[in-house]
Design a protein around this nucleic acid. Structure first.
Length: 106
DNA sequence: CGAGTGACCGCAA
DNA sequence: ATTGCGGCCACTC
């Protein structure tokens, strides 16, 4: 691969993966990072979310604890509204039932 | 080109 | 159970 793909391979995979998260499902930053080849780069996934393509459904990406992401445009309030609109049950603590709606690519 | 930073995660007190 | 700190890897300025 002498192409420049390897250069942004990580970012490309993250964006592609997030873009493929089905409605009503969520993924954790650590899981996405691991699937992209760097299980320790969970922070980078967040960085991609902030600097990357804002058209992607980052609202479906939550923490390992099921807690919503801080820094999302609109805050956890807005994210909660969108998730609830997609059929995801968000409690008053801004946490989703990650144990049930955690999605994984096949 | 170099340094700082971060939409995190895991562990320790 | 909560709070604090470090590490980690990639991105931006």
């Amino acid at each position: 691969m002498s192409t420049q793909q390897a250069d942004k391979d990580f970012r490309r995979r993250v964006q592609a993966l997030v873009a493929q998260i089905p409605k009503g499902r969520v993924m954790t930053y650590g899981q996405i990072a691991a699937l992209c080849g760097s299980p320790r780069a969970a922070r980078i996934v967040g960085g991609i979310a902030h600097y990357g393509e804002e058209k992607l459904p980052w609202q479906r990406v939550v923490h390992k604890d099921g807690h919503l992401a801080v820094g999302y445009p609109g805050g956890v309030e807005g994210q909660k509204q969108v998730l609830a609109s997609e059929g995801v049950g968000v409690d008053n603590e801004y946490r989703v039932d990650i144990a049930k709606i955690l999605w994984s690519p096949r």
